[in-house]
Design a protein around this nucleic acid. Sequence first.
DNA 1: CGTTTAATTGAACACAATCAAGCCCTGTGG
DNA 2: CCACAGGGCTTGATTGTGTTCAATTAAACG
Lengths: 242, 242
Amino acid sequence: MGLLLRNLKQRAILCEEDQQAVLDLPVVIKALSANDYVIREGEDVDCCEVLVSGFAFRQLLTGDGQRQILAIHIPGDALDFQNLFLDVADHSVQMLTAGPVAFVPRAAIQRLFHKRSRFAQAVFINVLVDAAIFREWVLNLGRRDARSRMAHIICEFMLRCEMMQFNDPDNRDLPMTQEQLADATGLSAVHANRVLRDLASENLIQPHRGHISIPDWRKLRAIADFNERYLHLSQQTLSNDI
Amino acid sequence: MGLLLRNLKQRAILCEEDQQAVLDLPVVIKALSANDYVIREGEDVDCCEVLVSGFAFRQLLTGDGQRQILAIHIPGDALDFQNLFLDVADHSVQMLTAGPVAFVPRAAIQRLFHKRSRFAQAVFINVLVDAAIFREWVLNLGRRDARSRMAHIICEFMLRCEMMQFNDPDNRDLPMTQEQLADATGLSAVHANRVLRDLASENLIQPHRGHISIPDWRKLRAIADFNERYLHLSQQTLSNDI
DNA sequence: CGTTTAATTGAACACAATCAAGCCCTGTGG
DNA sequence: CCACAGGGCTTGATTGTGTTCAATTAAACG
């Protein structure tokens, strides 16, 4: 649970005992394949998952089966704090790429939540930041055009990866197909393709097969109308420094 | 703080002491006017607010000043658990109608969060449900057409009001102008007007001046593709019954 | 009453969806 | 080694939903 601990320590100051309690959490690591479900809408929740490596995404479906991607998750992210005290999952989480996922019994996390209030605070902040990201996506879908939306989602991904300082260069590519990007931006696959071509023609992104690499995400910022306030990174580094 | 207590008791089982602690929270009630800011983006947070009566909304602006409404709040809602442990507000909350708002020092809520884990749990669940609502709005804006979007937002409002069992018939109208509804649905004001006219012509809604009443929100459900799972109401009543 | 805010309407336009077809890889099996 | 299948990407043509601009009407409020 080193990754989870690293995540939580960015959010609150944990004492030695708190930290040990997190490291002592019972955990089973499972290797999942791309597109495997981590959580399925409508199912009862009895585990909390942490993404060890690879990428994952949240999704919700309309009644007639259209998909909307709600969030993209990177290694170290907790995938299921959203359901820590909700009994039925209201949305699904699926793997974007193959990768190991740590499964922790929900009851163990709940116990820690009640016993160690600093841990509770760290988990709480984690959920608050997730909520802030959802809000930014509402703005993105509601008030930005296709080009900005696409750029915004790419910027967010890049910045979050950068903050986690992944060593592996594979972890700097966005491993999404154009169809998935369309479902994240609320566009049709055809239009997503055209937007991506435009961005590529300006050298703002470099699409490969099922991957997108970004030479310099900072160039995308202006197009994306990107302002990282909603990620609350300053608070993160602040806590780190202490 | 009776309203806040009622809200929290719907989310977790609080013992006598927990309940008394909530009732003992220091609080200042201020009468706010329509459009007054409760929280302003970019400002430091030092209070938690609870809406006593009237309605409020969250909003976020793009760089070029376009507004997106993120959520609508009804009496009893906590307006600022979203910032309980985040130092700078990443979005604004504004009054929709005039009404009293209870201001509680953030530090007092934080203290209770650390001291009483059942209270922490109730607050946490409150935030989880807010996050679930944001997710549904992402789906709404990303994958539904104008008509469904509008119907969906109205359905959500009606159902939430119904669950709170407001006595006052004034509290069953949605007090939003067409421009505000446009900003909530990600539409232009002109198109929002046309969608509302269509819905009104089918007797699904009844627009007055700055208000919309709904003869029977159940009729809107099919158009809205509305499924209340994301509001986690069953869990609410479950906890109530115990 | 005059002013303001909200609602309404029409016309022209634009962004994005849809439909349909074809391409280019990559993996698979004969 | 080649044929073929399938997924993902690309492209053009057409349609349509929703925007923009501009002007008007209606309703509240001082």
